[in-house]
Design a protein around this nucleic acid. Structure first.
Lengths: 230, 230
DNA sequence: CGTTATTTTGATATACTTCAATAGGGGTGG
DNA sequence: CCACCCCTATTGAAGTATATCAAAATAACG
């Protein structure tokens, strides 16, 4: 189970470089397979709280997770979404840096940090895989910061659509299971601005909406130009 | 030399938890001491370029470094500053995620990734120290994203002053060696807005300026309230 | 001491937010 | 099956925070 899990993760776009020998890893991880616990959660359930003890690593088997933080007056920010195949909870030695919530109903696999740490110690391949996943999270954060700090609404939404398309199976279709509020809190905008921007892209025939959560990138090239990828 | 270097890093606020036995680490690092190369750079010199091969780890001995990325039209974003004692270049397996430039004249220590990786393999204490430093970078990125995505100009500037004060020696004084443009590019604002916001804080008697690069936090409590720390 | 870079201040413009209303979609119960 | 409700998304009108454009003041530098 975990062998499959980590292989999937390594194959996902979020692992930037081909990491390590598959055989090595599969062998290493076979040991951990039976200690990963499966859990299912309803939409909007909390996986863990910001500030709580970081005790576990998770993998998304099905559904989607959001990592979010709140300001005292209720303003919310979403630092990342984790899709099926992605690992999360890797960061935050000691305390969780943000809370994790189920955007949709989800199935997760959970491992204790202790057991993963033990495995990583015995198997350098596992350690390397974890390092690569953390690295991908950092790369994502860097790009996200650039987006938040220096991109306008159109660039933000275009970037988001491209990211979701790339993380899904089809580079010309973005599935958006989250609400406009989630998207707004990820992009540092309001729902109204997100909505208006999507409408604008649609009226320019760059995208087509099957419904509000399923976007076809009709002209991906033009969207890439708008996104202003660094 | 490196022993001192890493000890300093571990002592700095950027290492969130007391990491590992000092003795263990000092012993481990003694071996690396002689392979760290010292280099000095002028103000505005580039340490490494975004997209270039990530070949080295660095420690700032003196001065300050900015990590920045550019959009195609010249908009710039600064993801982090590294002050004396901080390590950088730890992230970006393979390619550098952003370029690193000298904000002031700097003295750096450089190690090849290979040599550090080798040391980390032989000495778990070193590996752990590196992990903790990467973790601190992630925590900083998380907070930075929240700031960029959901804070207004006053909150941004107040947060920045507090961060700089905390990273310096004196919690009631922020030394700002960088220009207003650097600050603006870090906060996702313009120089004019940064300047106006600083003026506003000054006229409210929350801060006092020795000169534009040396800020006394007269009323730190009030600034903390304004900063709206999560 | 003049020259240039940086910072501050001022006036105006605008992108995005806020407030408000309408429209769509999905489920439930009558 | 339709009517109703709730939740989400869209659209509209007005307000505001921040950007932009422009100039003055201050600091840094040779």
């Amino acid at each position: 189970m975990l062998a499959t899990a980590i292989r999937t993760a390594a194959a996902s776009h979020r692992i930037s470089a081909i990491p390590i020998g598959r055989l090595e890893m599969t062998t290493a991880l076979a040991a951990l397979e039976r200690i990963g616990l499966v859990l299912s959660l309803e939409r909007d359930a909390t996986v863990f709280f910001e500030g709580g003890d970081a005790k576990s690593y998770f993998k998304v088997s099905r559904g989607i997770i959001r990592n979010c933080t709140l300001l005292s007056d209720g303003r919310r920010f979403i630092s990342d979404f984790y899709l099926s195949g992605n690992f999360f909870g890797l960061t935050g030695e000691g305390q969780n840096l943000c809370s994790a919530e189920a955007v949709t109903a989800v199935t997760l696999v959970r491992w204790t940090r202790k057991s993963v740490a033990g495995l990583a110690e015995r198997h350098p391949g596992v350690a390397k895989c974890l390092r690569l996943m953390v690295n991908d999270d950092i790369a994502a954060a860097q790009e996200h910061m650039l987006l938040l700090g220096r991109k306008d609404a159109t660039e933000k939404v275009a970037s988001f659509l491209l990211m979701m398309a790339d993380r899904g199976g089809d580079s010309h279709r973005a599935s958006l299971p989250m609400t406009r509020l989630d998207i707004a809190d990820y992009l540092g905008l309001t729902i109204e601005t997100v909505s208006r921007t999507v409408t604008e892209l649609r009226s320019r025939r760059l995208i087509r909406l099957q419904d509000s959560h399923d976007v076809v990138l009709v002209n991906r090239g033009a969207i890439e130009e708008l996104a202003n990828a660094a």
